[in-house]
Structures are given as C-alpha cells and as structure tokens.
Design a protein around this nucleic acid. Structure first.
Lengths: 171, 171
DNA sequence: GGCAATTACTTTAAGCTTAAAATATATCCC
DNA sequence: GGGATATATTTTAAGCTTAAAGTAATTGCC
C-alpha cells in the first residue's frame, strides 16, 4: 500500500487525490479529441450529403489539385500520411467515379502516375470552395486573436507530441 | 485589387488567385486535425503493440469502468458518441476476449446489460495507468499555463462548432 | 384488450484503415 | 552480367464505422 515506485522526487504529488497526477493533460487530450471529432464528423456528414463524397477522397483530390502534373501513389501516401494500401483502394474508387486518371510512369515500370481528370478537378474545386465556408462557419465564434493564439499553442503541442512520436518510430 | 465582400454575385469570379477568404480558419483546422491525428496515431500504435488492444475498445472499457453496475448498449453508444451497430460489434469482440460480460436486462427483454469482468477491470486499469503516462509525455513540452490556455481556447472552439453542428441535426 | 408508435438492438452493405505478406521492378556492387 | 538489396505497389485479413433496414419488445392511447 505504498505507492508509485520509489517516488524519486518532486514533491508535486500532492496526495489527497492521488490518481490525478496528470489530470490536466488528460483533460486537455479529451477536449482536443472531442473538438476535432465534432468538426470532423460534421464535415464528413456534409461531404456525404451534399457531394456524395468522403473526407479521405477529398484529401486525396486536394493533394492532386496542388500537383497538376500528377504524382505516384507512394508520394501521395506520404503526403496524406496514410498507408500505401490505403491509397491503392481510394484511388481505385476515384478512378471508377471518373475523377482520377492513372497511367504507368514513363520512367519506372513499378510505378503509377495519378492525376485528376477534368471532371475531377471541377468537382474538387466546387467542394473546396464550399468546404472553406464550412470551416469558417465552425470557427465563426472565435475572434481573430483567439484563432492566432490557438494556432500558436497547437504548434507547440504538435512539436511536443512530434518529438515523442518520432522517437518511437526510428526504432 | 481589393477583394471579397460587396461583389455579390459573381459569375464565377474569375480573377486568377482569388485569395482564400478564410485562410486563417482553414489553417487552424488543418493544424488542429494534424495535431490530434498525430497523438491519436501514437496512442493507437502503443495500445496495439503493448496491450494488443485498440482505442475504441479502450474507450468502451473506460465507460464501463465508471459504471460498476454496468449499463445497456444504448447508453454506452450515447456516451461514446458512436452508432448502436458499432457498439454491438465492439462489445462482441470484448466478450470473446473475456473482458466483458453481457446479461439480459431484468426489466426490459429487448435490452442487454454489459459490464466488465474481473479480468476486464484488471486489464483496463493497467492500460489506463499507462495511457495516462503517454498523454502526459505527449504534452510534456507545454507549460502549465499553456495547457490552461489551450483548454480554454478549445472550449471556445468547441462551443462555436457545436452551435453549427447542433443546428443541422435537429433538422 | 389491442393496435400504433416508439425503443433497444442486430444485421447488412459499403467504405476506411492498417500491418504484413506478396509481386514486380529497379538499383547497387562485385 | 548477376545476385543481393531496396523500392513501388497490390493483396489479404482483420477491425472500425456508419446509415439504413430489419427484428423484437415496450409504451401509449383508445
């Protein structure tokens, strides 16, 4: 019935509410997660209802819209931060819809080059314009200064988390 | 070269680079999303590697840990903010693993009551302790004041988004 | 009592996602 | 040149997630 090992240091550990050591961080994570999930869910819902599309498809198209010459699937998966296999399936569905075009890379017979079709580009631009409005709507309750503060604090949080995540993946 | 506003109608608004009216909000959303995804991915990875578990399973168990008497699936799905069908499958897998127990509700023959088994409770507590440490680790780069500021700004963002999302769902 | 509406849950179909294994090609080095 | 290694992509198996349709039981109301 002693507690946490050795307890090397730092007073800090108040006692009374023992378990709560990192309560502030836990609550922050919960709030961050809830906030993101709330907005994300609404965006997904609207993409589906208004454009019969999905967030991953939108993301993929956004990457290609920035690269008119097209790119291969590996590069796409890196930029989207998802697995290779994921992009394979996503691209396939977009090709079926006529929004995406694949052709073999001229320099590497293992690789495929994908790019938006004219229709894909048109469809994406329409979605993107509307999407931008949705996001503005979601954050309409924040003042410009609050947006700026949030940006900076999230940058700090991201840097902090990135350090931890990066450490693990070198492995 | 001024822009936006006024300009009500626009056929198309040609003007090459239409400057993205809501760029600040868009960048904020991107950062919020990236930050959450980064942390979430690391948590998922660790749950899998260290506990052979998943985030949805962890969340479900967390709800039940707070309700020793158990609860029915509908209540669980509400608290987790996911669909009913989702909980059905999740619970099924946890039962298979011996971490969850189902029994018919004594008062309503349509309903099931679920609760953690002794083993489930033990497993959850172990995970929760470790999980708390991970979260603290992720945010270790932030000062207490920064955590506090983030909490408040995210609360404002959440309230803003909630208003928008709620408006749509009454329908 | 009996029937309509509601509620609790499950099933289905579709898509997203990943890790791991498999395939095909390219590159490096002797 | 030829074999080892690395790279680009696809396939597979498993799980998560949802909306919509289906089933069963309960509740409300006449």
């Amino acid at each position: 019935m002693d507690d946490t090992a050795a307890m090397p240091l730092d007073a800090e550990t108040k006692v009374s509410e023992r378990p709560a050591d990192h309560e502030a961080e836990l609550r922050l994570w919960l709030r961050l997660f809830t906030c993101t999930t709330l907005i994300e869910g609404e965006i997904r819902r609207r993409l589906r209802e208004q454009f019969d599309s999905t967030l991953p498809r939108f993301d993929l198209m956004a990457q290609l819209d920035k690269a008119p010459a097209g790119m291969n699937l590996g590069e796409l998966s890196q930029r989207m931060m998802v697995s290779n296999g994921n992009v394979t399936g996503l691209a396939e569905r977009l090709v079926t819809q006529g929004l995406l075009e694949r052709r073999p890379s001229p320099t590497d017979r293992r690789a495929q080059l994908v790019s938006l079709t004219a229709e894909g580009r048109r469809a994406f631009r329409a979605m993107a314009r509307t999407h931008e409005g949705w996001i503005a709507e979601m954050f309409a309750g924040l003042k410009p200064g609050e947006i700026e503060s949030l940006m900076q604090l999230l940058a700090r949080a991201k840097a902090s988390a990135r350090k931890v995540a990066a450490a693990g993946e070198s492995k």
